[in-house]
């Protein structure tokens, strides 16, 4: 079953799906599929693909590592398949949505925005969790110490003793990011949703 584990087989399996599905749908997608549903498919494909990549590269907790090596490429292939097949599905649905017109516009916009947030959160949370659990982020790290002893003297603040409570300063940039991100999202949603129906694309 060596052939079954080869990356080539995985990619071939994914490509086979492309050829087995109707060519017209492919053409439709490539020249004008809708993107809201595609965002969901794309998000799932991206998560699967990235998880697969972590597996192939051995960047998963030790006890999952052999599974990562074995199944990582299949996760990658599944991600690719979902992306392609999702494209066909989205193309078909997209045609209907275009007919619905204005009524679908708000939903479309909300889905796209929230989809971005979901993908963002899923990546940040999921991979950080995996990375922390596995400890792999601290492997092969000797090079990072070299920069501290390369003859270029660190700033005096590098020697400064931390005082109690100063760690709380970390919340300042965190809050700034959160507040700005919230208001940008809210502002965009507000602008989109208050458009009169006749002005919607």
């Amino acid at each position: 079953m060596r052939w079954a584990r080869s990356p080539g087989t995985a990619v071939l399996a994914a490509l086979l799906g492309l050829f087995l599905l109707p060519g017209q749908a492919a053409a439709s997608h490539l020249s004008g599929g809708e993107s809201d549903l595609m965002g969901i498919y794309g998000g799932i494909a991206l998560v699967l693909g990235f998880a697969g990549l972590l597996g192939v590269l051995g960047l998963v907790p030790a006890r999952w590592r052999w599974r990562g090596y074995r199944w990582g490429r299949w996760l990658l292939a599944a991600g690719l398949l979902i992306l392609v097949a999702g494209g066909f599905h989205a193309a078909a649905i997209g045609t209907v949505e275009r007919q619905v017109g204005d009524a679908a516009f708000g939903r479309l916009a909300t889905q796209q925005l929230l989809g971005t947030l979901v993908v963002f959160g899923a990546f940040w949370g999921g991979v950080y969790f995996l990375a922390r659990r596995s400890g792999v982020l601290n492997m092969g790290e000797s090079v990072k110490y070299a920069v501290l002893r390369n003859g270029d003297p660190p700033e005096w603040t590098a020697f400064r003793a931390e005082r109690p409570g100063e760690q709380r300063l970390m919340w300042v940039p965190f809050a700034a990011m959160g507040i700005l991100a919230f208001f940008f999202t809210a502002g965009v949603l507000f602008a989109i949703l208050r458009l009169p129906p006749s002005a919607r694309l």
Binding site: S35, L113, V172, M177, L180, A181, F184, I192, L201
Partner: peptide, 26 residues
């Protein structure tokens, strides 16, 4: 640190404004 905050916001805005519905407004 300020640059990192702005980097986050830049790269948060970027994907957001590339979406078709957002792009149609901004």
């Amino acid at each position: 640190v300020s640059a990192m905050v702005f980097y986050f916001i830049t790269c948060f805005q970027g994907p957001m404004q590339s979406l078709r519905s957002v792009s149609s407004i901004v």
